[in-house]
């Protein structure tokens, strides 16, 4: 009898194993997975001393195209959703300066509109530009191949700031959301 009971219990356990349960799973949820990290990094830093500002012909301190391929890599351009570019301009010179920033495609055509930042002497100015659904077209970012930065002196060309090491500094950073899945 004991043997029969033992065998029955084994059969029961094996049956329990064979007829084990799986609670309802919904693998279609896979389609709802969104992997959209937000990446942030510095973009471009330009500085020019006040004596360069003072000696600029026609008050145009400089106009320069900078090759910038970070946005055009497929890994980024095919996945970017939206984001913001932040410009921070620090002016420690004694004159008002105008900074113009333009995004260009690989044929040097202007993409979207230019950003203009006017900075008073001894002051700082910040501009945040949104791209994507809540801002300008994200296509501007996807097609950017170079960035043109122009600085124009709106003041005199003789005064000298009493700040140590006076200069105009253009800082910028990009913060973009990309879709990995």
């Amino acid at each position: 009898m004991k043997r029969i009971l033992s065998i029955c219990s084994v059969v029961f356990l094996l049956a329990a194993t064979l007829f084990s349960c799986v609670e309802e799973q919904d693998f279609d949820q896979y389609d709802e997975i969104e992997v959209t990290p937000t990446l942030e990094a510095s973009m471009l830093y330009v500085e020019a001393p006040e004596d360069m500002v003072n000696s600029a012909p026609s008050n145009v301190v400089f106009t320069q195209n900078f090759n910038f391929d970070a946005f055009s890599y497929d890994a980024f351009s095919e996945r970017v959703l939206d984001g913001t570019i932040t410009y921070l301009v620090e002016n420690t010179t004694s004159k008002t300066l105008s900074i113009t920033i333009e995004f260009l495609d690989d044929q040097d055509n202007l993409l979207g509109q230019a950003d203009n930042i006017t900075v008073d002497p001894n002051s700082t100015s910040q501009l945040d530009v949104s791209y994507g659904d809540a801002g300008r077209s994200i296509e501007i970012i996807k097609n950017t191949s170079s960035i043109r930065v122009s600085t124009t002196n709106l003041g005199d060309t003789t005064s000298v700031s009493n700040q140590p090491d006076p200069k105009i500094v253009v800082k910028s950073s990009a913060k973009f959301r990309v879709q990995l899945k």
Binding site: A41, S42, L44, Y45, A48, Q64
Partner: peptide, 13 residues
């Protein structure tokens, strides 16, 4: 370490 493209004028030109 990277702080983006760094252009220090006038030497950079």
């Amino acid at each position: 370490t990277v702080e983006g493209l760094e252009v220090i004028l006038p030497d950079a030109f």
